[in-house]
């Protein structure tokens, strides 16, 4: 869900805006370091992919459906810097062209749906990779776990922002419990589809998956027997 205008008050929106600008600046540099002069076309196409894949609805529980947020997926596929950049571009386009998410809430949305989901998702994935066996297939459960945690993490940060700058008097404890519960459910859908998507790409083009780079085998060197 994209946060609209007026949900979070002006001072907190300004603060999230500054965090978003700083985060984007870091990611622009990071992405350019990795992709060089390919940054614009590749990040543009990956952003178009995220935009499209967010339209895939999947059933969450009886009668309800959710759609992918894609922050963790993007980070696992193209790396955290490019991933944050691509999801942020999607949010910018949605706010400016589709009125989806308020202009004053753009910073909040980038923090929640790009920075928090991608950074949390990627960190958890890398941690899980360190624990799991060092084979390519481990990335599937690792990415799924990253995606699973990324959704309630974003929900928690949202509740925190709402407590700081929300315009309503709500019982914080109960909202935290409720939001976390609901978003763990949504996270299961996100986790399943993220894991399966990463798995299907690993089966065909493992070289394209950023988080699978650690499984690359070094070129073998055969030494000639000493004469």
């Amino acid at each position: 869900m994209h946060v609209p205008d007026g949900f979070i008050n002006a001072p907190v929106s300004l603060a999230t805006g500054l965090v978003a600008v700083a985060g984007l600046a870091v990611c622009l540099r990071g992405a350019q370091r990795e992709l060089d002069d390919k940054t614009a076309p590749l990040a543009g196409l990956v952003a178009a992919f995220i935009f499209a894949v967010q339209m895939l609805n999947f059933p969450v529980a009886v009668g309800t459906s959710g759609h992918l947020m894609g922050g963790a997926l993007a980070a696992v596929l193209v790396g955290p810097y490019t991933g944050v950049l691509c999801v942020s571009v999607v949010l910018l386009v949605q706010a400016l062209f589709f009125a989806d998410g308020g202009l004053t809430a753009l910073g909040t949305n980038i923090v929640l749906m790009a920075l928090v989901t991608a950074v949390v998702g990627y960190t958890i994935t890398v941690l899980a990779q360190a624990v799991l066996p060092n084979v390519r297939g481990s990335l599937v459960p690792a990415a799924a776990l990253g995606a699973l945690v990324s959704v309630p993490a974003a929900a928690l940060v949202f509740v925190l922002l709402f407590a700081l700058g929300g315009n309503a008097d709500i019982p914080l404890g109960e909202v935290v419990a409720g939001m976390t519960g609901v978003h763990v459910l949504i996270g299961i859908g996100e986790a399943t589809i993220t894991g399966l998507t990463v798995g299907s790409i690993l089966a065909v083009r493992p070289d394209l998956v950023y988080a699978a780079r650690r499984y690359r085998q070094d070129l073998a060197i055969h030494h000639a027997p000493a004469r």
Binding site: K38, P41, L42, G44, L45, V46, A48, F49, A52, V53, L56, F58, L68, L77, T192, I193, G195, L196, T197, V198, G199, S200, I201, V204, R205, L208
Partner: peptide, 17 residues
């Protein structure tokens, strides 16, 4: 659905290249 998403990602990435 995930299989479609995976195929779509590969197509997008390759098109970018």
């Amino acid at each position: 659905l995930a299989h479609s998403a995976g195929a779509l990602f590969i197509r997008c990435f390759e098109r970018g290249e």
